[in-house]
Structures are given as structure tokens and as C-alpha cells.
């Protein structure tokens, strides 16, 4: 093994991640829950969205093993999301170990003071908002699995709550980030 290439390559990767940390920007981030019961929960008090496309879809994740039923999902493509009031992202990993009487849950909770994202693609299983406005809405009926394609030129949504299990983010800029790691072992005495 060539140690110069190894050390140089790994140092370049660490420097890139450090530069991203200093700039408070993440490029090409992927949030990925391993299965449908490990959804990533996102809460945004106020969201300004542009160029939104929402449609139905079908996940390959099986949610019912007896019927082999695949999970239906909402596929969202968003040009930009601006969150002046910040956002809270909660990703919980379910760790199953055969010798344990039950699973262990490890949650990473990210709280952003402000956040702005571009070129976001998400697969959501749940989405709700307490209120807001939509501009330039265009809805089209489509065949399975889309069902309906909804295009929104711009939108403002309040108390937006989404449960997703995949998100690809072109770039994420943020301020006042706080990260908390929580371990939950529900079967402990």
C-alpha cells in the first residue's frame, strides 16, 4: 500500500469536511433512514419554498412482511427552502442486536437557528402544515404510482412537519447549529 496516497487522500477528505464545517455549508448531503420505521422527522416553524413538485410514488421498503406490501411515499422535489425560524431534524436509528431482548434507539437531533437548502429531493411518508399560502399551483392526474402531480411555483408554510426516509440536499447553509445525541433503551428496567 502506498502510504503517501493513503495519507494524502484521507487528509484531503478531512480537510474538505473541515472546510464545509467552517463555512457552515454542506454540499450533496444525503439523509438516509434504513427502513420506514426509522423515518427522519423534520419540523420547520416557517418555510418559504420555491419550484415545488410533489407526486406519489412507491418505496421498495416492505412495511408489511406477510402481505409484502410496499410503502407508498410522497416524492418531493424542491428548488429552494428557506427557514428563517430554523428547523429541527431528528433521525433515529433502530439498532437491532439478536442477543438483546429489544432494540436500542439512537437519535441524532439537529437544531438549526436558520437554514436554507437548495435542490432538495425527498421521499416522505407524512407531511402536514398548520397554515400558509400557495402560489402558482398546477395539479395533474397521473397514472400509478404518481397518482397526482402537483406543481407549486412558491409557497409559505407554517409549522411544517414531515416524516421522510430519504433526502438528498444539493446544498445546505445554516447558522446556530446544535447537535444532541440521545440513546433510548425502552425495555430497560
Amino acid at each position: 500500500m502506498n502510504w503517501k496516497i493513503t495519507v494524502g487522500g484521507l487528509a484531503a477528505v478531512v480537510l474538505l469536511l473541515l472546510a464545509m464545517s467552517v463555512a457552515q455549508v454542506v454540499w450533496g448531503a444525503v439523509l438516509y433512514a434504513h427502513a420506514i420505521y426509522e423515518t427522519i422527522d423534520i419540523t420547520i416553524p416557517e418555510a418559504h419554498l420555491t419550484n415545488v413538485v410533489m407526486k406519489g410514488g412507491q418505496s421498495e421498503v416492505v412495511i408489511d412482511e406477510t402481505t409484502e406490501l410496499a410503502a407508498p411515499v410522497i416524492i418531493q422535489e424542491v428548488g429552494s427552502i428557506n427557514c428563517p425560524g430554523g428547523q429541527v431534524v431528528n433521525r433515529t436509528l433502530k439498532v437491532d442486536i439478536p442477543s438483546l431482548p429489544g432494540p436500542i434507539y439512537v437519535s441524532a437531533i439537529l437544531t438549526f437557528g436558520e437554514a436554507s437548502m437548495e435542490n432538495v429531493k425527498m421521499e416522505a411518508v407524512y407531511l402536514c402544515s398548520s397554515g400558509g399560502t400557495l402560489n402558482g399551483v398546477n395539479m395533474t392526474v397521473a397514472d400509478f404510482p404518481e397518482g397526482m402531480v402537483q406543481e407549486i411555483a412558491s409557497a409559505t408554510m407554517y409549522n411544517l412537519f414531515t416524516k421522510i426516509f430519504y433526502a438528498s440536499i444539493g446544498s445546505l447553509g445554516y447558522t446556530d447549529l446544535e447537535i444532541k445525541i440521545v440513546i433510548n433503551i425502552p425495555w430497560l428496567q
Partner: peptide
């Protein structure tokens, strides 16, 4: 040490990297 709350969590890009690697 991070999981038991002794060491501080890493910056966001490193945390994303760790979470993806864990999978």
C-alpha cells in the same frame, strides 16, 4: 464517548459522514 455524552458531537458534515457510514 460521544454516545454516552462525554465527548461533544462533531460538526454537521462529520456527523452526516458518520451517520451514513454507520448504515
Amino acid at each position: 464517548l460521544m454516545l454516552v455524552g462525554v465527548a461533544p458531537p462533531p460538526p454537521l458534515p462529520f456527523l452526516f459522514a458518520i451517520l451514513n457510514a454507520m448504515t
